[in-house]
Design a protein around this nucleic acid. Sequence first.
DNA 1: CCTGATCCTGACTGATCAGTCAATCGATCG
DNA 2: CGATCGATTGACTGATCAGTCAGGATCAGG
Lengths: 197, 197
Amino acid sequence: MTTAAVDKRRVILDAAVRVFARQGFHTCRVSDIADEAGVAYGLVYHYFSSKEEILDTLFLERWDVMLAAIAESDASQRSPRDKLYAVAAFIIDSYRHDPELMKVIVVEVTRAANTFGLTHLEKIREAYAGIAAIVEQAQADGLFRSEITPEFAAQAFYGSVEQVLTGWIFDSVAIGAPEFERAKTLIVETICRGLER
Amino acid sequence: MTTAAVDKRRVILDAAVRVFARQGFHTCRVSDIADEAGVAYGLVYHYFSSKEEILDTLFLERWDVMLAAIAESDASQRSPRDKLYAVAAFIIDSYRHDPELMKVIVVEVTRAANTFGLTHLEKIREAYAGIAAIVEQAQADGLFRSEITPEFAAQAFYGSVEQVLTGWIFDSVAIGAPEFERAKTLIVETICRGLER
DNA sequence: CCTGATCCTGACTGATCAGTCAATCGATCG
DNA sequence: CGATCGATTGACTGATCAGTCAGGATCAGG
């Protein structure tokens, strides 16, 4: 695969992010992606076997990085609160860095587990499991209350983060660095106060 | 409109719930709904002007009841914690009473704000606003901390509830009355501990 | 400069499906 | 009885679009 070829593949993926974010996966046509990428229709099928595979690729590219970040945070020697902060910070920074990509992942995959995300349910669950592992450790160390199952706590935590993201995605109010930082602190502060002894 | 006529409309709506829950809104055909309802294809268009209007109707029917429940809880003289408990209980009981309908509402409307729910964004926001009103009152009464904006707290709260619901929807593990009751308590307990002074 | 491979093009096809409509059914009433 | 009108039927149409394919361009190696 030559450098040019790699580039065209990337160009198509990047164009797809913009198109999916703007029109939605189900509503857009493959030709929209080709047009946005400035590439012939057929070339899309040279690099991807279907429209779905494009979304697949975008999701997995990013999600795997997130799973690694969660695992790394879990493995670190920080306090549970700092570990959860690292997770929230990763997700929020992902949005900050590339809002369109995160919109596509959240809206078209994570929150659409029905139509499309069923394929990725296992991957999505891995994220919950990673967060649950952090909570479980904190409970074992006597830092978090044990009434709540780690799985439940993980859902509450992830749910809060994703809902805040969803708010930004659809409320279309401009937000800057301070708001992002504040959101990280507030979510973690709220949920951890709820979980701590 | 005769009684029989009212019934057919209802039969179609109920069939649509089952079909949407099973196949998803985008993936199902109108003929699937007609078949499920045991009714001719054309009759669907006698009662509804489009496939979307069916989903519209299902969503609004239920959502308006929920908005009323939130408003009523807010207006009551209970403690903030009890008010939020009432909201969580309403949503969770809705799922318990009709899981397929709640699956459709959450998956196809609430969590699909992109493709379809944009139409209902305003309605959805009303729910957040109602929850935020409860938090705001609690802050004014000095019961909740003021660092967190009511809107933010509402998103965290609603996000947690919806994520737990989503877990039930997709994990397809059988759950009984005790789990539902436990979930209400745990969510409210966790979030309120995080919000209280 | 030939040859095979890979990249790239866009017109075309085949299937799908939302929505239409002309025709039938059946209840109600004068 | 027969006229009227809403309920009901399902075959049909028109548009859309994912994916194919046959061929042209470009490049690498011999």
